[in-house]
Nucleic acid binder design. Sequence first.
DNA 1: ACCTGAACACCGTTCAAGT
DNA 2: ACCTGAACACCGTTCAAGT
Lengths: 246, 246
Amino acid sequence: MKTLSRKQREVQEREARILEVAQELLVQHGYHGLSMDRIAEVLEYSKGTMYQHFSCKEEVLLALANQALAVRLQMFRCAAAYRGRTRERLIATGLASELFVKLFPHHFTVEQVIRLPSVWEKTSPRRRDAMRAFEMQCIAVIGGIVRDAIACGDMELPTGTSPEHIVFGLWSMTFGALSIAMTSVSLSDAGLQDPLAVLHENQSRLVDGYGWRPLSHEYDYQATAEKILSTVFSAESRAAAARNRA
Amino acid sequence: MKTLSRKQREVQEREARILEVAQELLVQHGYHGLSMDRIAEVLEYSKGTMYQHFSCKEEVLLALANQALAVRLQMFRCAAAYRGRTRERLIATGLASELFVKLFPHHFTVEQVIRLPSVWEKTSPRRRDAMRAFEMQCIAVIGGIVRDAIACGDMELPTGTSPEHIVFGLWSMTFGALSIAMTSVSLSDAGLQDPLAVLHENQSRLVDGYGWRPLSHEYDYQATAEKILSTVFSAESRAAAARNRA
DNA sequence: ACCTGAACACCGTTCAAGT
DNA sequence: ACCTGAACACCGTTCAAGT
């Protein structure tokens, strides 16, 4: 671990400030309000300098996404380390996802945009691989919980099913529900006033469908959720609540 | 039903051609390749004329989305009308979603973009309401199947759960899975070579979790799926297969 | 009444000129 | 070696002038 030269530190710091401002612009003015011009203007850099740090606008977005994904992975790892039964640890990771979108509300926009093919193809292999790695590590964390459940007898894996199948089920349901909840305009008209509560119910039913014990009617998972929020993620919960009030 | 004047017909026709070209540009060059400039150029209209049909670029996108959503609703209705048990009709709607994304691959991009807050807020109330209406009618179709299942005794609704909760579960899982499958880069690295097959498995498990009979191990739903594809959606299946080959 | 295309503001990106 | 900002190409949107 070599100490960085003053120059290198300066570059790193400037990069961090660019991302800071980019995030601010995104949160305050939406995707439309984010431009290389504006970032440069706020930071009083020239446009040219921006391009020494990021080869294009898309790279700024992907860097922003990766920053957030690093935090999410950390939160997943905390969640998976919860001392409890395997299904409780799974619930902890679900709550981590929800807290994450509350703490990084702009990330949803970023991720949606970055995944557009015409945006994605302009990004650099280095940052793409970083994103891929975060994604796979998240899958591995949840997959680990599934494997633990099988190892300790909380669940039998159906033949032809791999632990990743279950991970994909939870991932797609949670991603889909949060995505719809954030952007759909007809949810409460359709009788879905509290999409998060409904998501929890559906997650339970899915896991019940795989026979992961204790089944939802055999155990008080509501109490588990409350305990997790007040212990593992007490700081995050308070921050999310504060953000909601604002 | 009054006949339209020649002028009115011309306007309608031109609007249709604008959307046609917009879709083409989107499919061939991605979101980045779609611009008012290019549409006008291809159709040999002036830029100004474009703005007599659509007040902004976002309106073109939303009109495109609504066009596709009308087709999807139609497909859902065909699916729900399948003569079979309630769970089979549910499977038919799931297959309809999949065929829809295969037949309108650009729609996913459009829907992702249209839902960005900074894009959404520029659209007109008229087209927004149209989109909302399509969304709610889709929910109503699936909700109807759930209600039928309850009515005929294939399922008991847990207390505190409404049919829309189950609809939301299936909707979020299917939307999430298709969205991830279309855009994620690490799926097959993570051992998920056939995300659609895994989606089917997870849908089954979710519905099993709600106790919707016959449960997946009591019935050959694989055969059901094949029959649906070759009867209700035979034309769509063939079109999707042809598109896959291209 | 409708259409046109010049004009404007803004944006991403590049690069010759400066330090 | 690094930074700057003028310059270019492109885009969304408007509107005075034309028919």
